[in-house]
């Protein structure tokens, strides 16, 4: 059954239909809720395409292997101990992590 619509496809078409057919006919006092529903669905749809690549930038900065959680904890500890004070490399890593997360939560945010 490879032609079965998958989860991402379902959320995507549900969102498109909601935006095209439902949003325009809603009374204005329901619009805020409707926009929130559309936002939640679009985040879910992007997340189904794959999680943000946070581990890549972490590995590069720390020069260590490990999963996202392990490397994030190590970096947090190093930051708290002052080992990255004034480090331009840290700042660009934090930007890379944040951009990767934004690509899922709100790609148009600037």
């Amino acid at each position: 059954m490879t032609d079965l619509p998958d989860a991402r496809g379902l959320v995507d078409i549900a969102l498109q239909t909601f935006r095209a057919e439902i949003l325009p006919v809603l009374p204005s006092n329901r619009r805020v809720d409707a926009m929130m529903i559309a936002r939640a669905l679009s985040i879910a749809e992007r997340e189904m395409q794959g999680p943000p690549d946070v581990v890549g930038p972490l590995r590069q900065l720390l020069g260590e292997e490990g999963d996202e959680d392990t490397l994030s904890r190590r970096l947090c500890a190093a930051i708290a101990e002052g080992r990255f004070d004034g480090s331009p490399a840290l700042r660009s890593t934090l930007w890379a992590i944040t951009r990767a997360r934004l690509a899922v939560s709100n790609p148009r945010y600037a």
Binding site: L58, D69, S72, R73, L75, C76, I79, A80, L94, I97
Partner: peptide, 10 residues
């Protein structure tokens, strides 16, 4: 969370 999120830690 301050020990898990590097941006927050920073």
């Amino acid at each position: 969370e301050a020990g898990r999120d590097p941006v927050l830690a920073y």
